[in-house]
Simulated assay, not measured.
Amino acid sequence: MIVVATEDFEVYHGVVNELRDRGVAFTTIEPGDEWPDGADVAVITAGESVEIPDGVAVVQADPDAPRQAVESVISTLRGGDGRTIVGIDPGERPGVAVLHGDMVVAAFQVPAAEAGDIVRQEVEDAVDPVVRIGDGARLVGARIIDDIQSVPVELVDETGTTPYLGSGARGMGDVLAAVNIARLEGEEIESRTIEPTAGELQKIKDRSREESDTNRAISEGLARRVATGALTVEEALAEHDSDSEATDDQQRDTEQSEQNSDDE
């Protein structure tokens, strides 16, 4: 049984709402009240002094992080080791799955540029977290790895991690693959240096043409900077347009100078 025992209204409100949202049975008491029989886990406010019966596990909740507290409670009840593992199926909109032990506690699908922030939020204050990222979508994966700081990262062979999707499951493939990736051990790495291929550069140039108002692709040099994460496609297009305007101005100045020379 889960027992919420705190005088902090913010913690009480946040934890109780999270438990209700997940359909988890619980009871509440005031600190100092008699404890119910069968209590397994107590949720209290971090730093709060509460007398806990022997044999009852304790989870200390932060007012700003009720979900993390509830995840710890559920993991404790399930008997898992509680380690936080983040699985990432890389791509332009990577799937991200967060596991505590064997329990999936959160899932996301966000633009690649936001993946690093998601990881940092999910592993904050976690004990011995690890991030496992698939080895596909090389360029995007390398950028995500570079964006993740102070967290051990393992590169996982993602072969076979994307499941068959039956009727009604469209759009879930990347997230489910991230769950499978999280459950596979990989090779620990600190970074991943990738030299973009000609085909990968062409894909970036094609994408820039699609997003350009003038239907003009960026140069290979700019495409290479996008591939390494130094620029976004939008930033590369802005720089390309700026360079094009400068070139056009220079061309007009040259033509005008030649015309003036002819007139003389």
Results as ranks from 00 to 15, higher is better:
4 V>F: 06
5 A>F: 04
5 A>I: 15
6 T>Q: 05
6 T>L: 06
7 E>R: 14
9 F>M: 10
9 F>S: 15
11 V>D: 09
13 H>K: 12
14 G>M: 05
18 E>K: 14
19 L>F: 08
24 V>G: 00
26 F>E: 03
26 F>D: 04
30 E>C: 03
34 E>C: 03
36 P>S: 07
40 D>H: 13
42 A>P: 13
42 A>N: 07
43 V>F: 13
55 G>K: 01
56 V>N: 07
64 D>W: 12
66 P>G: 13
71 E>R: 13
72 S>L: 09
75 S>L: 10
78 R>G: 09
85 I>F: 10
85 I>K: 05
86 V>D: 06
87 G>C: 07
88 I>Y: 02
90 P>G: 08
91 G>C: 08
99 L>K: 14
101 G>A: 04
105 V>N: 05
108 F>D: 12
109 Q>W: 00
109 Q>R: 15
111 P>H: 10
112 A>W: 03
113 A>C: 01
118 I>K: 01
121 Q>I: 08
121 Q>L: 11
123 V>A: 09
124 E>K: 14
125 D>T: 08
126 A>W: 00
133 I>Y: 00
140 V>N: 05
145 I>L: 08
147 D>T: 11
156 V>Y: 03
158 E>R: 12
158 E>L: 12
160 G>M: 08
161 T>K: 00
163 P>W: 03
165 L>I: 14
166 G>T: 04
171 G>V: 09
173 G>R: 04
175 V>T: 05
175 V>D: 00
178 A>F: 01
178 A>K: 01
180 N>T: 12
180 N>Y: 09
184 L>K: 15
185 E>N: 14
188 E>D: 02
189 I>F: 07
195 E>R: 12
196 P>E: 01
198 A>R: 10
199 G>F: 02
199 G>C: 00
199 G>R: 15
200 E>C: 06
202 Q>A: 12
203 K>N: 10
204 I>H: 01
206 D>L: 12
207 R>T: 07
211 E>V: 04
214 T>L: 10
215 N>G: 01
221 G>E: 14
222 L>W: 06
223 A>P: 10
223 A>L: 11
226 V>P: 07
226 V>T: 01
233 V>T: 07
235 E>H: 08
235 E>K: 13
237 L>P: 00
238 A>R: 10
242 S>P: 00
254 T>E: 15
255 E>R: 13
255 E>P: 02
262 D>H: 05
262 D>I: 07
